[in-house]
Every structure is written in C-alpha cells, then in structure tokens.
Amino acid sequence: MTTRYTEDHEWITVEGDVATVGITAYAAEQLGDVVFVELPEVGKTFKKGDEFAVVESVKAASEVYAPVDGEIVGVNDDLDGEPAKVNEDATGGGWFAKFKLADASQLEGLMDEDAYKAHIA
C-alpha cells in the first residue's frame, strides 16, 4: 500500500482496486482553517482531472481534482460535522472519497512521497 501525490496536492492511497483520496497536509495548511468540504455523490464517476470535490476555508474555495478515473464508492461523511479533520489529520481522518479504480496504470504517472516533497519545497 503506497501513497502517491498529484501536482495539485491530492494524495491517493490504493488498497486492492479501491483508492482513498484526500488533500495533502501542505495543501490544508496553505488553505487555512477548512470550514466545509463539498463531497460527490456515491455512484458518480469521474475522469482524471475532473473536479470531484470543493474544499472551503473562510476566504477561499478550491476545487479538488480526481487523481485517476473511477467511480465514487464512499465519501467521508464525518467531514460534514468536523471539517477541521482536514487540517488536523489530512492524510488520515481527513480523507475525502474512495474511488473504484478504472485504470490502475494511471497511478504510475503520479509522484511518490520524495517527489512530492521536492515539488512543494
């Protein structure tokens, strides 16, 4: 189980054919206090690069892009009451959605942790 990253600061962790997606701690810190996350409906499908969620701080709203093609098979309902989880635990309890992967090979184009660290440095 490895975690990969996009240039737009999404992380993606794959188990079997299901990928969990969220935004990185770096992105959460840049946004400031997250106050709301608009999540997609379960069952919707997205292409890589599509906007699938919106994350809002007090003074900004940012689109979150699908890192891979896939169908939404779960969303993090906890964020509705506790959006602060995105700031507190971006890569854990602050996850956004689970994608059923359509094409696992798309993962290969994404950054590993070292590459992402270099990207944000």
Binding site: V35, F36, E56, S57, V58, K59, A60, A61
Partner: peptide
C-alpha cells in the same frame, strides 16, 4: 459563509 459569494467564488 462568504465562499458562496462573487468576491470569492467569482464565476461559480
């Protein structure tokens, strides 16, 4: 809840 509004959300 200003993220609904034009000065932040602009075309959306």
């Amino acid at each position: 809840l200003s993220t609904r509004e034009q000065h932040i959300r602009r075309d959306k």
